[in-house]
């Protein structure tokens, strides 16, 4: 018998397994009464956040303790809500650093795009979300509020050790995989 030609019979055929499925669903959901609850009773219980959780943004320092941020502006341009603003300045030895570095956390959506864009591992998101304020103005963080003393998640990276620019303590040719500067006054092969 072709069931499709007899919709009533077709419906009746489907009804039995469908009812069974409904009942099984009810049963399964009911059995959840005896499961452990997933809710963490914050703030009485502290929350476990994985190290790569995207929370409060920090600026880190390289292994030598120097500011990692070179004020390249890539985090600012990657930011979808445009909440990062900074200004490049230069130290006497040629090292770039941000004159100011401001994040407006009242706009930040903690998407982590800045961290992904950062070529020097300077800007990192941390597992900390407890940043509530009663005054919105307090959510505007300046460099003093952002800069920490350690290297954060990335322990070894040192941008200037792989960049070509000469800075104090690292001359041309002293970076990783670099030859000594060429002598332009010779034509010898």
């Amino acid at each position: 018998m072709d069931r499709n030609k007899h919709p009533i019979i077709n419906t009746a055929y489907q009804l039995v397994p469908a009812t069974g499925s409904l009942l099984r669903t009810l049963g399964t959901v009911f059995m959840h009464s005896f499961r452990k609850r997933e809710t963490v009773s914050y703030p009485e219980e502290s929350v476990y956040l994985p190290p790569r959780y995207r929370g409060r943004i920090i600026l880190t320092r390289d292994p030598d303790g120097e500011e990692r941020c070179v004020a390249c502006n890539l985090c600012a341009v990657a930011c979808p809500v445009d909440c990062i603003s900074l200004q490049k300045a230069e130290q006497d030895d040629g090292r770039w650093y941000p004159e100011f570095f401001r994040i407006n956390f009242s706009r930040c959506i903690f998407c982590g795009m800045c961290e992904e864009a950062c070529p020097t591992s300077a800007i990192q998101l941390t597992p900390d979300f407890e940043m509530g304020e009663y005054d919105r103005q307090q959510l505007v963080y300046e460099k003093e509020d952002l800069l920490i003393d350690g290297p954060g998640k990335d322990h070894d990276y040192h941008f200037y050790k792989v960049a070509g620019m000469a800075i104090g303590g690292k001359d041309k040719g002293q970076a990783k995989d670099e030859e000594a500067p060429e002598d332009v006054r010779t034509l010898l092969p």
Partner: peptide, 8 residues
């Protein structure tokens, strides 16, 4: 609903 959805 909380109970069945594993929350409080």
């Amino acid at each position: 609903l909380g109970l069945w959805q594993d929350r409080y």
